[in-house]
Design a protein around this nucleic acid. Structure first.
Length: 244
DNA sequence: CCCGGTGTTACAAC
DNA sequence: GGTTGTAACACCGG
């Protein structure tokens, strides 16, 4: 479920509940007191990267799907939901998600210009943020939610392969044009991801993520844990340039 | 002793 | 057994 584009799909899917009043709510752990939601009207659904936001007049419920979060709309699974919201004419269930109550104004909490799928996205700001981190690696830059909010490990791998940049490249050693290309491809692929996920063809279009052979020159991909977070990168030593 | 940074571990579901 | 991801710790140096 969880990279940025999947959250947009979720946001789209729940629009029927916008403006609707929660008549009953429950949460099966202590991370959120669901009682406060009862009788509240949902003013909007928003997203910031991988964060899904249910907005109420005086607060917001933040939902993070982590790796295995799921949801059902007007349905439920056998397992008790982490969060259940009941409406006059439907219900919303979330499973294995992380919940958090935001009481501050969202504009204070979120830099909308850092959200790759927002129309407020600002490429120049991303360049600035990357320049401020010495020795920043390309794989870490893309995974940094303060810079590329919404990018996850799949998008990271696909972007780096498409622009032919080795994941452990030092961003400051990349030509400015290449850095711009990385940013542009992150946006472009994220929208492709969205289309392909909607079409049910996401993994058919993977060129690097989870792949064994480089489709450009047919030699085996390296599969290594890279960067500060040690997330898996699939890369080809022949066609992907390591800037350092 | 606290603070920020780093690194490890835990947890989620299938 | 591996992972579309963070959060919570422990630990360390200053």
């Amino acid at each position: 479920m969880p990279e940025g584009p999947s959250i947009l799909i979720l946001k789209e899917a729940v629009q029927q509940f916008k403006g609707k009043k929660v008549i009953k709510a429950s949460c099966n752990n202590k991370t959120l007191d669901a009682n406060i939601l009862k009788g509240q009207t949902i003013t909007d659904f928003k997203s910031w990267g991988k964060h899904f936001l249910i907005c109420f007049p005086k607060f917001t419920v933040r939902i993070h799907m982590m790796m295995f979060g799921s949801y059902r709309i007007n349905q439920h699974t056998e397992k008790p939901p982490r969060l259940n919201l009941q409406f006059e004419d439907g219900e919303l269930n979330f499973y294995a998600v992380l919940l958090h109550l935001i009481e501050e104004p969202l504009n204070k909490v979120y830099d909308w210009q850092a959200d790759i799928m927002s129309d407020k996205w600002d490429s120049k700001k991303a360049v600035k943020k990357m320049k401020a981190i010495p020795e920043l690696l390309a794989c870490d830059a893309l995974m940094d939610q303060q810079i590329f909010s919404g990018v996850g490990n799949i998008i990271k791998n696909e972007v780096l392969f498409r622009i032919k940049v080795h994941p452990e490249s030092v961003v400051s050693a990349m030509p400015p044009k290449k850095v711009k290309e990385m940013i542009n491809e992150a946006i472009k692929y994220s929208y492709e991801f969205l289309e392909q996920r909607n079409a049910g063809t996401l993994n058919k279009h993977w060129k690097a993520y989870n792949q064994k052979i480089c489709p450009r020159n047919h030699i085996p991909f390296r599969k290594e844990n890279t960067g500060r977070s040690h997330r898996t990168s699939f890369y080809c030593e022949e066609c992907m340039v390591k800037y350092e």
